[in-house]
């Protein structure tokens, strides 16, 4: 297919503000050495109670950014969702592998998968959504470090186990946010607890608009910085807790969406709030996550959960 044909097909269905030249002109290219990595992954499903009643609707999409497409780099974002073994809690994880590391998608995957596994073990049978985030992230950082070393060794890096932790983190590092939603409502709301390292973010979207559960990145800064905390380096997590009610959505995202969203009070916030009042079809949702907006060319990942009306 010629570049001209490709351009025809790349014109995005969702544009917020000025689309920029990249949205129309970037020709996606594969990574020369990481063929297994998917450009885009998505999910859409309903979570049922044991008697078959709908408890929540989940939409998730992780989309390779225009910049990684143009420069033949893989998507470094990752996400995961599961219901705990006892059916009580929904666990969401979203991670953003740091672009500075060539293999950061490995760190993102392992942070998501190991974190969800740990939370499942911690929460199954628990009588309330409560997580000791500091020790959780300490253990998770060790998991991520070990998996990253193993992965490097498997790729033929003979000294993978003698490299220092900062050396490992320079090759593979990731931010990650976890949110745990109690599927059993209390007083018509669902309790949610959250823990985050880095600039992935957790929001509650409702009639009042976008409510951040943590401080917004680069607030008040003179110049923009992409510096952030990341595993497997030790980092103090940002903790939060709150409620999500039917009619609202719990939304976990990487900064690919979080940066253009800002405080959620501008045109990006208004448009996404309108599109996500109710769960869209998962393919629509994916196209929406990949909205075009000039200069926003990072990987994009969003997991959104709408509790069902009882």
């Amino acid at each position: 297919m010629s570049a001209e044909d490709m351009t025809q097909q790349c014109v995005p269905r969702y544009v917020i503000g000025e689309p920029g030249r990249a949205a129309a002109l970037v020709v996606p290219r594969p990574s020369a050495d990481l063929w297994g990595r998917k450009d885009t992954v998505l999910d859409g499903f309903q979570v049922d109670s044991p008697n078959g009643a709908a408890l929540a609707y989940v939409r998730a999409a992780s989309v390779r950014g225009l910049s990684h497409r143009a420069y033949a780099k893989v998507r470094q974002d990752a996400y995961g969702v599961r219901v705990t073994g006892d059916g009580r809690y929904l666990v969401v994880a979203v991670a953003d592998g740091l672009s500075a590391g060539a293999l950061s998608h490995v760190a993102a995957d392992t942070a998501v998968n190991r974190g969800i596994r740990r939370l499942n073990a911690l929460l199954t049978g628990a009588d309330q959504a409560a997580v000791e985030w500091a020790p959780f992230f300490r253990d998770l950082a060790a998991d991520v470090e070990r998996d990253c070393r193993d992965d490097l060794f498997d790729r033929g890096v003979a000294d993978a186990n003698s490299r220092t932790l900062p050396e490992i983190a320079a090759t593979m590092a990731t931010t990650v946010s976890f949110a745990v939603l109690d599927l059993i409502p209390f007083d018509s709301g669902h309790r949610v607890v959250m823990g985050t390292v880095g600039d992935t973010s957790v929001w509650v979207l409702g009639d009042g608009g976008w409510q951040p559960t943590q401080p917004v990145k680069n607030d008040g800064a003179d110049l923009h910085s992409s510096a952030t905390h990341a595993l497997p380096l030790p980092a103090e997590p940002v903790r939060a807790a709150g409620w999500v009610r039917p009619g609202e959505a719990l939304v976990v995202m990487t900064d690919g969406v979080g940066d253009p969203l800002g405080h959620g009070t501008g045109e990006v916030g208004a448009r996404l709030a309108q599109l996500w009042r109710t769960p869209p079809h998962e393919l629509e949702f994916t196209a929406q996550v990949g909205f075009a907006r000039k200069t926003y060319d990072d990987d994009r990942t969003v997991v959104a959960v709408w509790p069902a009306r009882g």
Partner: peptide, 9 residues
């Protein structure tokens, strides 16, 4: 700050 309009260099 509302939505950012872009990151410039």
């Amino acid at each position: 700050m509302e939505s950012e309009r872009g990151k410039l260099l």
